[in-house]
Nucleic acid binder design. Structure first.
Lengths: 207, 207
DNA sequence: TCAAGACATGAGCCACTGCTCATGACAGAG
DNA sequence: CTCTGTCATGAGCAGTGGCTCATGTCTTGA
């Protein structure tokens, strides 16, 4: 029988979709154009995905899972709190370089025009990081790496805020130019940024 | 002659627009509905604004100017670095309560689907804060309130990142529920959040 | 070799919405 | 009261893009 879309072809389709959604947003991205650009017909997209929203969701899920995987790997490394933080920061830089569109899509969810289900999906992933970060900080607190009168979840929240905006500042247009506005050429020096943020976080953690 | 739209009416129109754009995004917000909801005709919107994008821009400018005014007022207060920070944090809370949609619009610009000009506008406003924060920190550094081997612009950048995400965490749906996910009921206790963030920033500033 | 099933194709349908413009209401001048 | 210029009105036009389905192609089994 006529060949079904191979899973590589579907991955290519998702990748094209992610780029389109990242560049133009959910509404302005054109399904017909996505189909053309990935060399399949419009119709077949509607065979594999219920509708435009369903396709968007599949793209989002793909992006978030890759992102989450990288973060998890960095976080599960052995070592002190600050060693792990360093791994995280470098993982964030790597993701930004390798999959800039993934972060852009994530930022898009944040802003609103996407479906409630998209938010829930992002929320679930975010929830996992939230618990992981809180646990790591709680643990560091128990080991005396940070001072003991601190509210661990809130510390984790501030910490994640810094990381999240670093992610966006590497990948999303608006945040990128904002980063440049603040820091000039230094913004492009990954190594320097990592060191500066490390000392900032180290101080904030209280030791 | 027939009455022109009063400036109050135009303000009401902008306000309705801001709510619509905040709730549904630039693309999904419906000009006809906005006209209906503010009790004017579609046609008159196109008399006062060039097109949908021009109207969006006017709404955005309105929101950003109010926001910027509040920040400026807080920043120009007398006192030590941390006193000013406290004023800032409280101003952010107040804005979030009084004009939640303003912050949502700002976040929207960040995410992408809006025009290049919208970004530029937001960028200009952001640039002003950037210079102000950097100056305040530079000044505090000169006075010895923070340690002297620090990169002032980058410190200002991290600082603004924390403030920006606090703004969004007060006003934007996704960030609000993320805040709740991290901190539970504590997220709703404004006073507590301000204190926690104050000590976090104080430590990060290195003294 | 051929019938039948499985599948991709893409032209075109139609719902949606930004925007225009013909119309008429109103106010002031004479 | 009438004429004229100003302005809001909203029905409808037109462009866009999501989605469908009639059609054609390929493969398999007998």
């Amino acid at each position: 029988m006529r060949k079904k879309l191979t899973s590589e072809k579907i991955n290519e389709l998702l990748e094209t979709g992610i780029d389109a959604f990242a560049q133009r947003g959910l509404d302005r991205a054109n399904i017909n154009a996505i189909a053309r650009d990935s060399g399949v017909s419009v119709g077949v997209i509607y065979k594999y995905f219920t509708d435009k929203d369903g396709f968007f969701l599949a793209c989002l899920r793909h992006a978030l899972e890759v992102l989450k995987g990288e973060i998890d790997a960095a976080l599960s490394a052995e070592g002190s709190l600050m060693t792990r933080v360093e791994h995280l920061l470098r993982a964030i830089g790597r993701c930004a370089r390798e999959h800039p569109s993934y972060n852009v899509m994530y930022n898009e969810i944040t802003a609103g025009a996407s479906s409630a289900y998209a938010r829930q999906l992002a929320g679930e992933i975010e929830g996992i990081s939230a618990r992981a970060y809180t646990a790591v900080i709680e643990e560091a607190k128990a080991r005396g790496e940070i001072h003991s009168d601190v509210d661990a979840p809130m510390l984790a929240f501030f910490f994640d805020n810094l990381l999240l905006l670093l992610q966006f500042s590497y990948s999303c247009d608006y945040y990128r130019s904002r980063f440049g506005e603040y820091c000039g050429a230094a913004a492009a020096d990954d190594e320097y940024v990592v060191r500066q943020l490390m000392t900032f976080i180290q101080s904030a953690f209280g030791r």
